[in-house]
Each structure stands twice: as structure tokens, then as C-alpha cells.
Nucleic acid binder design. Structure first.
Lengths: 137, 137
DNA sequence: CCGTATCCTGGTGGATACTG
DNA sequence: CAGTATCCACCAGGATACGG
């Protein structure tokens, strides 16, 4: 049936978020919802990286400023460990902590979901655009 | 040992993101990374909601404009179904689609992760702030 | 190499007013 | 009630220059 029409499954009773509110969603999203945090984690999931390596590896090109800010925040939250070798020139290595890896696992599942459903979503968007053509302008 | 020092676990070899890149992360985050999409989905996971209900339910107070934009995008992506009852005054109902529920499950796991680790992260932040006190004027 | 300090722009989202 | 249309403020993030 593919994406024939907007089917609606019955809600899984166990799934409901507790109405006691502030379920914690905002806190995570404030950490991974920004432009670079997740990409940095993804790259670090491939191994230890130095500052420049990290910067060069990120697609789209991150500025030094943003890489610093991003990596500092990740460090502060305990997701990334920063190791400074007092050499000259200075050398700094970044790697995921245990906490970082546990979050990376979830990030991974999000990525998997995305790839699994991207065709379906593209389908929906196409339908929607089709149905709403002519309305605007 | 709690969060004694920044421990680093060995990377799970199976976890690595495929280096073929554009793993799909950005696509999901572009959908759930904004201020309201997830909150709307969370509320809709509790049941069918009308426009105003949705607006009143969201903590922080969303503007009509943003609620419209958010809900339209979710609809366009096939995550939310919109049903219009041609009554007067008009009545519109929103609910999660199958696709929406599948994403909601992941959102839920993010929320769970957050609650499970928020203490640990707070701990880390406290340590970090402690260690970096005095550096900045 | 690894940052920090400034400056500046674009886009997200709020406030408000108006329609069907 | 359920939107649409405008206008506007704020700040995430880019560009650039400088420092340890």
C-alpha cells in the first residue's frame, strides 16, 4: 500500500509520556538539537580526533569558533573527554566518554530510523505538495 | 564511582556510523531539532487534539503562527494527520500517523535517556564549572 | 596547532492584527 | 475556532583577526 493515505495506528498504551510533564525531551534536544553537536559525536564515534582533524572531517565546514563552543559544551556535559598534551605546538585529543557513547547509540538509532523512512517521508511530502499546489499564489 | 573522572569506554565496533556519510542524522534533527515539533508529538501521543487544545497544552506557550507552521510541517512529512470537520465554527483534529508513532517511540527513548542521565550530567557540569572557576574573569 | 575576541548577518520564532 | 499576514527582536552561527 506504500503511503496511499494517512493511516493511523492505534496508540500503544505503554508509550504515552507521563503527563507529569517536563519529560526530559527538551534537555536532550538542547544538547543534540543544535547544528554541530551530533556531527561531532558521530565523527568521534569513529575514533579519537584532534581539533583540526575534527574540523576538517565535518561536512559543511564548521568555524573554529563553533567547533570550540560545541566541543566545550560536550565536554562540560561529560559526553566528550578532552586530553591536552603539553607539547609544542600544542596537541589536543577528543574522544567520547561512556556517557557520550550511550547517547551516540540513540543518535545512531535516529539515523537508522531516518534512512529507513526517508523514502516514505519523501513520498508524503510529494503528495502533500501535489495536493496543495495552486493554493498559494 | 559515580562521575569521579572522565572514564572512556572502548568503542563498540558495531556502533560506528558508516563513513559513507550523510548518515541521515541531519534529516531527523531538521525535523525534531526545532523548538516545537517534538513537544507537539508528545502531546499528540496522549491522544487526538484540536488546534486550541494543542496550543493550550504546550508548556511555554506557543504562538498561533508557530503552531500552524509546526503542525503543517509534521503533516507534510506524514507524521501527523489533520482532519477537518466542516462545521461552524470549524473544527480540526490532529493525531499521530503510523510513521509519527514510530518516531515518537524514538523520541520517547531520548526522553528516557535524558531522565536516566540527567543527574550524572549535572554532576559533570558541576565538576567542570568547579574546575574552570577563576579562569574567566 | 589550538584556541579566544569581535563584529555582523540570517533565520527562527514571538506579538499583534485581521479573516472565514 | 482555526487559521493567515506583517512586522520585529533575538541569538545561533559565520567571518575575520589575533594570541599562547
Amino acid at each position: 500500500m506504500s503511503a496511499g493515505h494517512t493511516e493511523v495506528t492505534t496508540p500503544d498504551p505503554e508509550l504515552f509520556f507521563d503527563p507529569s510533564e517536563e519529560c526530559g525531551i527538551r534537555e536532550v534536544l538542547d544538547r543534540i538539537g543544535d547544528k554541530w553537536s551530533v556531527q561531532v559525536m558521530v565523527e568521534l564515534s569513529r575514533g579519537v580526533r584532534r581539533f583540526r582533524e575534527l574540523q576538517r572531517a565535518l561536512p559543511g565546514g564548521i568555524s573554529q569558533r563553533m567547533l570550540t563552543l560545541t566541543v566545550r559544551r560536550l565536554e562540560r556535559d561529560g559526553l566528550v573527554a578532552r586530553t591536552v598534551y603539553p607539547t609544542v605546538p600544542p596537541q589536543v585529543e577528543y574522544e567520547l566518554t561512556g556517557l557520550g557513547w550511550s547517547l551516540a547509540r540513540l543518535v545512531r538509532s535516529l539515523a537508522d530510523w531516518s534512512r529507513e523512512h526517508r523514502a516514505e517521508m519523501a513520498d508524503f511530502r510529494h503528495q502533500w505538495d501535489e495536493a496543495h499546489r495552486g493554493a498559494a499564489e
